[in-house]
Simulated assay, not measured.
Amino acid sequence: MTLCRAVFWIFALLYFLALALFLVGTFGLFGQEKDPLSGVFLIPLGLPWNHLLDFLPDIILAWAVAAAPIVNLILLRVICAMLTRSGRAS
């Protein structure tokens, strides 16, 4: 496994853990109290894209910020594919 793939999978794991914490805190699952700050771990994972989402209404904003790290995951995957291709060509 290359370093790029390892970074991709670590980022994906962190994203899914942060998303799980967001869902548990937002809906009060497993007997937890509802917590408005449960999505705080999604914010740094979604940078810089969640700064571009300020124009959205509040109802959609929380879910858009929760989905913003997907853009970074896609970009990491594309960069890994490009590095793999360039490594094979040389």
Rank of each mutant, 00 (worst) to 15 (best):
N72P: 03
S86A: 14
S38H: 02
A66Q: 00
T26N: 09
A89T: 15
M82Q: 12
L29T: 04
L29G: 03
D35V: 01
S38E: 03
L76R: 03
A18E: 08
L21I: 08
G28H: 01
R5H: 09
A62M: 10
M1H: 12
I43Y: 04
L19S: 04
V24M: 09
I59R: 14
L23W: 15
L45V: 00
L56Q: 07
A6S: 13
A68F: 02
F30P: 06
F22V: 06
M1T: 08
H51S: 15
A64D: 05
F27D: 01
N50P: 12
L37K: 11
I79H: 08
D35L: 04
A68R: 06
I60R: 12
L13G: 12
L13W: 03
L56V: 06
L47F: 13
P69W: 03
I59M: 14
A81E: 15
A68Y: 00
L37Y: 14
L61S: 09
V78C: 14
N50Y: 11
P69A: 09
G46L: 03
I59G: 09
D54I: 09
E33W: 08
I10Y: 06
Y15S: 03
A6H: 09
L75C: 13
L19A: 10
M82F: 07
G31P: 00
P69E: 08
F30C: 08
F8D: 11
I74K: 05
G46N: 02
L21S: 10
V24W: 08
D54P: 12
A6T: 14
A6E: 10
L47M: 03
A68K: 07
I79M: 14
L47G: 01
W9Q: 10
A68S: 11
F8N: 12
L75Q: 07
I70G: 01
Y15K: 05
G39H: 06
L53A: 07
G87L: 02
L37I: 06
K34Q: 08
R88H: 06
L21H: 11
L52F: 12
M82S: 14
A68H: 01
T26Y: 13
W9I: 10
L83K: 12
A68L: 10
G46Q: 02
L21C: 09
V24E: 04
N50F: 10
A68C: 04
D58R: 13
